[in-house]
Design a protein around this nucleic acid. Structure first.
Lengths: 166, 166
DNA sequence: CGTGAAACATTAGCGGC
DNA sequence: GCCGCTAATGTTTCACG
């Protein structure tokens, strides 16, 4: 995971692209005072090295009717049989596999502290959330306990990472 | 915030674009069995109605040297002078304004529960995090208390929202 | 909704600093 | 090494059927 060498121009390109991923190469070249070809070569290099992971469209959750954002702390069983039939499969592995199949879970981290996982869950309303917790989360054999908090208002929400100066 | 009317094709277009925001209109048209022009008209309509908020490049935090992801719960002063000189400015408003200026804070929500705000903080390492908490967060006059948890591992992380079927 | 043509963007090869 | 020019190719976009 050795950090790729990035000069000042690379960083400006990254800063531009994480604000607007649809700018044409020409436009970007102009903004960083380069002609189109070296600019494109730099962008391709950033893509191939994986510094740029992907390009996406960001949708408006409210306009899609997704009015409820919850953060859910989950505690898991640590020992005992996993009911998977197979040995050597941990509860954590089972749970992580389940998470991948739940589209309403948009993020899942293993965390420090007394809860094991933190989930970010995006749903239409409290009825949907309640159903998700009952039918999916608590229904999962590895889950011991869940604690939910709800977003009242979002004041900042960006995919733009702070690019280190050094 | 009346949800725009979306038919099945619109939803397929959205699903495609939130996975890959750089596909050419031609490619998208092909995948939804439309010719390029009506497909482009639909995309423009989705952009203008705000369902598509923006297009961005997603960067790799680790390749940028951002190896520490923290979730920070913050509790604020609720009453008393804000030291802003102006009356009628709440502690919450002051804090929210400060958050906008901190690039390491990539998300900030007002939350239910006994903490007021949840921050997602992306930094290089624990030394940087420590400095951020001491010099920015705890230094802020409205902040009473902070509790931090750290991501040990990320199992899911997507900007793709679950598009409701109805 | 689809066709076609003009405008525009991307990209590979090559020469120069 | 990295930059910039040129020219061929591909894509977007819009007026019109």
């Amino acid at each position: 995971m050795a950090s790729i060498e990035l000069d000042a121009i690379d960083k400006r390109i990254l800063a531009i692209l994480q604000e607007n991923g649809r700018l044409s190469n020409q436009e970007i070249a102009e903004r960083v005072n380069l002609s189109p070809s070296p600019c494109l070569r730099r962008i391709r290099r950033l893509e191939e090295s994986g510094v740029i992971r992907t390009y996406v469209a960001l949708l408006d959750a409210q306009k899609l009717g997704l009015d409820l954002l919850a953060y859910v702390n989950v505690r898991l069983e640590k020992r005992g049989p996993t009911a998977s039939g197979r040995d050597g499969v941990t509860h954590a592995e089972l749970f992580r596999a389940a998470v991948q199949t739940w589209p309403e879970v948009v993020a899942c981290h293993a965390m420090t502290g007394d809860m094991d996982f933190l989930l970010r869950v995006q749903v239409e309303d409290m009825a949907h959330f309640s159903r998700f917790v009952q039918d999916q989360l608590l229904h999962h054999p590895s889950v011991i306990d869940v604690k939910s908090s709800f977003s009242l208002q979002t004041f900042k929400e960006t995919t733009a990472l702070p690019i280190p100066q050094a």
